[in-house]
Design a protein around this nucleic acid. Structure first.
Length: 895
RNA sequence: GCUGGGGUGGCGGAAUUGGUAGACGCCCAGGACUUAAAAUCCUGUGUCCUUAGGGACGUACGGGUUCGAUUCCCGUCCCCAGUACCA
């Protein structure tokens, strides 16, 4: 054993040993409980960043902990290697996306290995390789057979200058991110997966995972899916001269009544407020508007055109859009009150949600209220707070200052008066059914998942268009549909594959005639929806994975990743599992039992913002001064200019990025891993401070020195003390077992910062033991403490632990080969002989007494009163009351 | 705006069911070792008062419940995240 801790030397040694012995290779084993530890796979951008380090350090800690607890642990990693950055690199630097991606994977795998993460590398998958994306296509065809994949016309963001489709982010502000020209919407045929067929399951099955997922994630998912229960109500619509009114029958939006008049269907969650409706408001894109556009006055037509044009622009979320609209001149009849009300067009009604038509009830809806105020429409209150109900029967509608959106009691609503909103909602929906103008209904925000991308670097959609047979799925035996080696990637224009005849020219699988392939590729969220099943069986050529292997390993026991994937990725992955269940590949509803979302890694930035724009300076070029308390008092750059500072997300441009490679070079992987786990709770932001990692190194050096100092004493065959042992050894054993409990409990509850603190305390306790003159019991206690410490550190600092463990056991085979186990907590050992009991007088701490933990309340009280300090406060006063909490405290109330 | 989460030393953060607030680490200060520095080790470190022993105050702010509140309840302020007219 070296006298000093050389991180690089032992890290290389153990990484090599692990690789040679296949220490982390996992195979199904029915005799052991399994644990599937999964972390979100990285995009191979070329560099590992600290966010990855944090994510994978947590996952690796858990994987190691479970291994030492005797679990058969599956801990794989792979690459989310399809996607735009590869194409951007191709555009910018003319490199081949495949080469670029493969090179990056090489580099990043090396970085992961240097961090010493305990992956089963045999199971690595990469989305861009044909053996993987073959099964993206396989799933697509299966879903096509199941009726879950379909094609339809839809609108996309379109830049006519660049001839390119854009994502919402790329079109933010209504301008193309690349050329700055205005973005329009364009109709395009796109493939969809029917996520909406599973909306109810996606919502209802949350009950199964509630215990293991952060509440905030489930909440966001359920908001995203946006189930709302209400009712459809049909309003008869007419023009002043009825002949002018045209009502195309559009299923679900409009219908024809038995008087031969057109009806418009609205969706409402508050049918109980229908007597307060002052208008029907339609989306500008509503079919009834389209059909009557020629009949409207010029003013109306102009307004409608204007609103449509506004809607076609991508939304700029920063600005609140002002309500706009116009009375079309059409009239509608309230089917409950038979009142005739105007039909408006409003910019706040969206064609994509519900029926594209609403009834406007300004008294009880914020948006309708604002709309009515702006255009001077009548506001009639029909819901009252229960205690106000009587007043409303005698009073005419009062002018509301603000809309009353709560549930209450119906007023001014004919024979429904006096009913509670909850009851009225139900009964009025039934009434509507009975009279044929409506029904209870549920609508969703979630739409089907559009997976078509006009991109090169993705999995080709395995569909063929034949002039004779139409849309024909590729045959399963022809999969994968391979990407060509090269395609003209310009970053502009439509699907690169559409310019590669060798790719798209094919024959029809049905008639063998000439045909064309689909040239769009799949959204990369497809790859990440099922990658964690491929790890189970990465070389299977016939199936995405073997169902028996899946039955052993899945569902995932713990998934760890960034909070930014809480909604999309995790909804798609849940959807995919449900589809796989319906295909018979798996038997469960939910693929992930427990989810942990980790916070961002941020760093201190220094900048000069005098010009209004922040000019950043890297920390190395900044001189910082602190006051005696350690508070930062000034920061100046090389030219002596005063700078301001802040904490911001790490990035190169801000000069606060940290390269994991540099950290490993300077401090070692173990120290870096220990620090990221210790510095903050995993779900919080983590502020990177160089000084913090130095503290981690110091701690590891201390532990190293402890083992170095004591190892010679551990030689003989040490037996546990027959007697209770001396008080020093007893105290240390106590601390050891208390720490075992704390650390185990922390791992079970997924806390990683507090166990490190507990281990530091234990290490401090060992340091307090004097080496010289230590008796045999003390040596035993130290050995137990040190061995426990080393084992419990393994999840955080596996290399250092392996090395120290090899010193303690006297062989170099490694913990797993030695069947090392996490130390066992012995309750008897953790118990203290004497505990400190605080004594309060009138709730204020005045003294402390020592007593055995099992001391009776009476004795504790006596001890307290015997205390000199307590006497000072009680003498000459009346003792009103004494509260004794066993093992906790004594509180004496005096007057 | 709405929804969710949160305000604890100079900083990151600890505190079973209400029971010794500030564990652990960083920063900072003092000391030992050293020709010197680094490294290491030791000591101190919530604020204020005090010669000492000690005392008063203190978990965003204001109230309340309780023998006792960082923890429970009510009100106010602030921060962070998500969301964007979802009828």
């Amino acid at each position: 054993m070296d006298e000093k801790y050389f991180a690089k030397k032992i890290e290389q040694k153990w990484q090599q040993k692990w690789a040679e012995s296949g220490a982390f290779h996992a195979e199904p084993d029915a005799t052991r409980p399994k644990f599937y530890a999964l972390e979100m796979l990285p995009y191979p951008s070329g560099n590992l960043h600290m966010g990855h380090v944090r994510n994978y350090s947590a996952g690796d800690a858990l994987a190691w902990y479970k291994r030492l607890k005797g679990f058969n642990v599956l801990h794989p990693i792979g690459w989310d290697s399809f996607g735009q950055p590869a194409e951007d690199a191709a555009v910018k630097r003319g490199v081949n996306p495949r080469d670029w991606t493969e090179d990056n994977i090489q580099v990043m795998r090396g970085q992961l290995e240097r961090m010493g993460f305990s992956y089963d590398w045999r199971r690595q998958m990469a989305a861009h390789r044909p053996e993987y994306y073959k099964f993206d296509q396989w799933f697509f065809l299966k879903m096509y057979e199941m009726g879950l994949a379909y094609k339809r016309l839809t609108q996309v963001n379109w830049c006519s200058h660049d001839q390119a489709t854009l994502s919402n982010e790329q079109a933010s502000g209504g301008l193309c991110w690349r050329c700055g020209n205005p973005v329009t919407k364009k109709d395009l045929e796109q493939w969809f997966l029917k996520t909406t067929a599973y909306t109810d399951q996606l919502l209802d099955d949350m009950a199964e995972i509630e215990a293991g997922w952060p509440a905030s994630v489930l909440k966001r998912q359920s908001d995203w899916m946006g189930r709302s229960e209400g009712a459809f109500v049909e309003f008869e619509v007419m023009a002043h001269g009825e002949s002018l009114f045209a009502c195309p029958i559009v299923d679900g939006l409009t219908s024809m009544s038995d008087h031969g008049k057109g009806r418009v269907r609205v969706f409402t969650t508050r049918i109980d407020t229908i007597y307060g409706a002052n208008a029907i408001v339609l989306a500008a894109e509503h079919p009834v508007i389209q059909a009557n556009i020629d009949n409207f006055s010029e003013e109306v037509a102009t307004k409608i055109a204007f609103i449509r044009a506004e809607n076609a622009k991508p939304a700029d979320h920063e600005v609140e859009i002002e309500k706009d609209g116009i009375d079309t001149g059409l009239r509608a009849v309230n089917p409950f009150s038979h009142e005739e009300i105007p039909v408006w067009v409003g910019n706040y009604v969206m064609m994509e949600y519900g029926t594209g038509a609403v009834m406007s009830v300004p008294a009880h809806d914020d948006r309708d209220f604002e709309f009515a105020k702006k255009f001077g429409l009548p506001i009639r209150q029909v819901i009252s707070e229960p205690h106000m109900e009587h007043a409303h029967h005698t009073m005419q509608a009062m002018a509301l200052e603000v809309p009353l959106t709560i549930y209450g009691v119906l007023v001014h609503s004919d024979f429904w008066n006096g009913k509670r909103s909850e009851d009225a909602k139900k009964e009025m929906a039934e009434f509507a059914v009975k009279h044929g103008f409506g029904e209870a209904a549920t609508t969703y925000r979630l739409r089907d998942w559009g997976i078509s991308r006009q991109r090169f670097w993705g999995s080709p959609i395995p569909i063929i268009y034949c002039d004779r047979c139409g849309t024909v799925p590729e045959k399963f035996e022809n999969l994968p549909v391979r990407l060509p080696e090269n395609a003209p990637i310009t970053g502009t224009g439509e699907s690169p594959l559409a310019k590669v005849p060798e790719f798209y020219e094919t024959t029809c699988p049905k008639c063998d005639g000439p045909a064309k392939r689909e040239t769009d590729t799949m959204d990369t969220f497809v790859d990440s929806s099922w990658y964690f099943f491929r790890y189970l069986d990465p070389t299977n050529e016939d199936m995405p994975f073997d169902t028996e292997k899946a039955a052993y390993w899945t569902p995932v026991d713990q998934y760890i990743g960034g909070d930014d994937h809480a909604v999309m990725h995790l909804i798609y992955a849940r959807f995919w599992s449900k589809v796989m269940r319906d295909m018979g590949l798996v038997t469960f509803d939910e693929p992930v039992k427990r989810l942990l979302t980790q916070g961002m890694v941020v760093g201190e930035t220094f900048f000069d913002d005098e010009t209004g724009k922040r000019i950043y300076y890297p920390a190395d070029d900044v001189t910082v001064e602190r006051d005696p308390k350690g508070r930062l008092t000034s920061a100046v750059n090389a030219e002596g200019k005063r700078l301001r500072h802040a904490i911001e997300r790490m990035s190169k441009s801000k000069g606060n990025g940290v390269d994991p490679n540099d950290m490993v070079d300077a401090y070692g992987a173990d120290a870096a891993r220990l620090f990221v786990m210790f510095a903050a709770p995993i779900e919080n932001e983590l502020v990177w401070h160089e000084a913090g990692i130095e503290g981690a190194v110091r701690f590891l050096q201390r532990v190293w020195r402890l083992v170095y100092r004591w190892q010679s004493a551990f030689g003989g065959d040490l037996q546990p003390p027959a007697t209770a042992g001396g008080s020093e050894s007893r105290k240390l054993r106590q601390k050891t077992h208390q720490t075992i409990k704390r650390v185990s409990d922390s791992f079970e509850s997924l806390q990683f910062n507090t166990p490190v603190a507990a281990l530091m305390e234990l290490s401090n306790a060992i340091s307090d033991v004097e080496f010289e003159n230590a008796d045999v019991d003390t040596v035993f206690a130290v050995r137990e403490a040190l061995t426990s410490l080393v084992l419990m550190l393994t999840p955080f600092t596996p290399h250092t632990s392996e090395e120290l463990y090899s010193v303690l056991v006297g062989n170099d085979d490694g913990m797993l080969a030695n069947s090392a186990r996490f130390p066992e907590f012995i309750e008897e050992m953790a118990k203290a002989d004497e505990i400190e009991i605080p004594v309060q007088i009138n709730g204020k701490l005045r003294s402390r007494v020592m007593a055995p933990p099992e001391t009776s309340n009476e004795d504790l009280e006596k001890l307290a009163f015997a205390d000199e300090k307590v006497r000072e406060f009680t003498d000459g006063k009346d003792v009103v009351k004494v509260i004794v909490v066993p093992k906790r405290l004594v509180n004496i109330v005096v007057k």
